[in-house]
Deep mutational scan, measured.
Amino acid sequence: GSPGIQSFLPPGWEMRIAPNGRPFFIDHNTKTTTWEDPRLK
């Protein structure tokens, strides 16, 4: 199987799917959430 997208996120980050189907990202380091992919910064 191919590695999940989770493995490509920075340490402490998690990806979830919102009720509307959009992915969002949780930064457990700062306890914040964002719509922006942290890998694109």
Rank of each mutant, 00 (worst) to 15 (best):
F8K: 15
A18I: 02
F25S: 00
G12S: 03
L9N: 01
Q6M: 06
G1A: 13
W35M: 06
F24V: 14
A18F: 05
P38R: 00
P19D: 08
K41L: 13
W13A: 00
L9G: 01
P38Q: 02
R16L: 10
P19V: 09
R39E: 02
P19F: 07
K31G: 15
E36L: 11
F25P: 03
K41H: 14
D27H: 07
I5H: 13
D37L: 02
I26A: 02
G4C: 15
D37R: 02
G12L: 04
A18V: 03
R39F: 05
R22H: 10
W13L: 01
N20R: 02
G12K: 04
E36N: 09
W35H: 05
S7Q: 13
S7I: 12
P19A: 12
R22P: 07
T32K: 10
F8Q: 15
R39A: 05
D37Q: 03
T32D: 05
I26W: 05
P3K: 14
E36K: 09
E14V: 06
F8D: 15
W35G: 03
I26T: 06
P38M: 02
P3N: 14
A18E: 06
T32G: 04
Q6V: 13
N20D: 14
T30A: 07
F8S: 15
R22G: 05
N20L: 02
R39T: 08
Q6H: 12
N20M: 02
Q6Y: 01
P38C: 02
F24Y: 15
G4T: 10
P23N: 08
R39I: 04
R16Q: 10
P23H: 11
E36M: 08
T32Y: 08
D37Y: 03
S2P: 14
P19W: 07
P11D: 11
G1P: 13
R16W: 05
F25E: 01
P19H: 09
F8R: 10
I5C: 15
A18H: 09
H28W: 15
F25K: 00
W13E: 00
W13H: 00
T30D: 04
P11C: 15
P38D: 01
F25D: 01
T30H: 07
M15V: 10
L9H: 01
W35P: 03
N20C: 12
P38F: 00
F8W: 14
S7T: 12
R39Y: 05
P38K: 00
H28N: 09
Q6W: 00
H28T: 10
I5W: 11
I26N: 01
M15K: 06
G12V: 01
G1Q: 13
P19M: 08
N20W: 04
Q6D: 15
L9I: 04
T34M: 06
P10V: 04
I5G: 13
L40H: 09
W13M: 01
G4I: 12
E14D: 05
F8A: 15
G4V: 11
P19S: 11
P10A: 04
M15T: 04
W13Y: 04
P23L: 09
T34C: 08
F24I: 15
W35S: 06
P3I: 13
I5Q: 14
T34Q: 10
A18D: 12
H28Q: 07
I17S: 05
P11N: 09
S2I: 12
K41I: 15
P3W: 05
H28P: 05
F24G: 04
I26F: 09
K31R: 10
I26G: 01
T33P: 04
I17Q: 06
P3Q: 13
K41W: 11
T33E: 08
K31A: 11
F8Y: 13
P23R: 10
P3R: 10
K41Y: 10
P38S: 00
G12D: 03
T30Q: 07
L40Y: 11
F24L: 12
L9R: 00
P10W: 05
N20F: 02
I17D: 02
F25V: 00
G1M: 11
G1T: 14
S7V: 11
K31S: 11
I26R: 02
N20A: 02
H28M: 09
L9P: 01
P3T: 14
G4W: 01
D37V: 01
G4P: 14
L40G: 12
S7P: 13
T32W: 06
R22V: 12
S2L: 13
P11G: 07
K31F: 07
P19L: 09
G1E: 12
M15N: 00
T34F: 07
N29F: 09
T33A: 12
D27I: 01
G4E: 15
W13P: 00
I17H: 08
I17K: 06
D37F: 03
R39S: 07
T32A: 07
K41M: 14
D27Y: 04
S2M: 14
R22E: 14
W35Y: 09
R39C: 08
I5S: 14
D37G: 01
T34L: 04
A18L: 09
G4N: 14
M15L: 07
G1D: 13
L40K: 10
G21N: 05
N20Y: 01
G21V: 00
P23A: 11
F24P: 03
I26L: 06
I26P: 02
F24S: 07
E36F: 12
D37A: 03
W13V: 03
M15P: 00
G4L: 08
G12Q: 04
I17G: 01
A18Q: 05
D27S: 02
K31W: 06
F24Q: 12
R22K: 14
G12R: 04
N29H: 08
S7H: 12
R16N: 05
W13D: 00
P19N: 09
S2N: 14
G12Y: 04
R39D: 02
R22T: 11
M15Q: 07
T33N: 07
P23K: 10
E36A: 07
